[in-house]
Nucleic acid binder design. Structure first.
Lengths: 221, 221
DNA sequence: ATATAATGTTAGACTAATCTAATATATTAA
DNA sequence: TTAATATATTAGATTAGTCTAACATTATAT
């Protein structure tokens, strides 16, 4: 395990590289709010520790070792956020900064217990995947109902929330995992969404609910 | 707020000074596992920040400002320990190291919520007082039944535990806050304690239970 | 295709926290 | 009361992480 600073570099490299695969010194400097030469020398250090692959003027790439480290930190961050919301009852808007600190806590026991209390969640409530303790992670962010356009059809595959009141709400609307649904209307005004079920019945959902329903898009038809 | 290192110095100075009032450079160096000159220069820095009062070759004393800082950290440490045990279900033996990390988390919201979830505890389960959010602290560690000698009499004033099973256990033994009790016997072998109640009834308690019963000694008679 | 702009690197300095070696002060014991 | 011991301080070096200023490379745009 590296220093707190090293952890932050690794984490930022990981998240920046999610889109492009490679990360440039200037992007990292912007993200971490330090100057270019600072990043430059830290990258050399991380390269010497085999956390990143790097050649001057080329981009930065995490090695397997670096990826493992990054996933460990992201796991801790996302577990912490979920824990702060679900167990401690804090609001989603206020947990990020706390999780930024908790992600550096070094205690496998602490995180194993959080994982257990949350019943080994695979996704956080935004649909972002939580790496498991071996660093396994779902390849991409799950699409939620909100990500679908009008007319698109998809299968409900998971819900990113397991509070009883939420699940009851879904039941009341006849929504279950495995159901095929089609988007009928997305309301701009309040972001509510209307779906059609296989039974042709239509149901309306608020943005908050739709966000927590994860789906697989059906491409052909 | 100072750096993590500064916080650790302040906390150690506080705990060392609890006994004696003054702390010497060498004690601090031993406790923090660094060399004398390291402590010497850090003390000068803390003195320049008005956290400690210090003159060469004299002891180190926390200023009011330093004390406030120390109490804030101790508050966070003890709340964290209690939280890890009561809410997260970890064992007492394993929470100290985690609390050493959590005590440096900077988030009034996080700690206010822990305080609330624990119902604003005044003592941790070892009878150590938890400073309140204004830094107010009970002046000394509460005495537990275990601190009494054979023949001594005291009044039960609090219990440092409020799990139902524990409270049921006390009820079953007819022990309640306000009761006057006298120590009849302390068993060396298993540290169990036998008390006499006002009703003359005798009850035996294990060390673990006695530790969580807090008392005020009766001096005269 | 070359000048300009954007991006990256090197050199050298600074601060925080630590160290070792040398020196100074205070305490204790003969 | 002075030598021996314990404790504290100063001086100077080291490492991690940061900075500014100067220079180098790559990309872009007429």
């Amino acid at each position: 395990m590296g220093s707190l600073t090293e952890e932050n570099y690794i984490k930022s490299i990981y998240s920046l590289s999610q889109a492009t695969g490679e990360v440039f010194v200037s992007e990292l400097a912007r993200k971490l709010e330090v100057k270019l030469p600072t990043v430059n020398s830290m990258i050399k250090k991380l390269a010497s520790k085999k956390m990143v692959a790097y050649a001057p003027y080329q981009g930065i790439k995490l090695t397997e070792k670096g990826k493992r480290e990054a996933l460990g930190i992201i796991r801790k961050h996302r577990l912490a956020e979920l824990f702060l919301v679900k167990v401690m009852g804090l609001g989603w808007e206020e947990v990020h900064d706390i999780a930024e600190q908790l992600e550096h806590v070094n205690s496998p026991r602490f995180y194993a217990r959080i994982d257990e209390l949350l019943n080994y969640p695979g996704f956080d409530p935004h649909g972002e995947p939580i790496p498991d303790s071996n660093g396994k992670i779902q390849l991409q962010k799950r699409t939620s109902l909100n990500d679908l356009a009008e007319g698109e059809t998809a299968i409900i595959t998971a819900v990113a929330e397991d509070e009883k009141s939420f699940l009851d709400h879904l039941n009341a609307k006849s929504l279950q995992i495995g159901n095929r649904i089609t988007i009928v209307k997305k309301e701009l005004f309040d972001c509510s969404i209307t779906l059609q079920l296989k039974s042709k019945k239509e149901v309306m959902l608020t943005h908050q609910v739709a966000e927590r329903i994860l789906v697989d898009k059906l491409n052909g038809k």
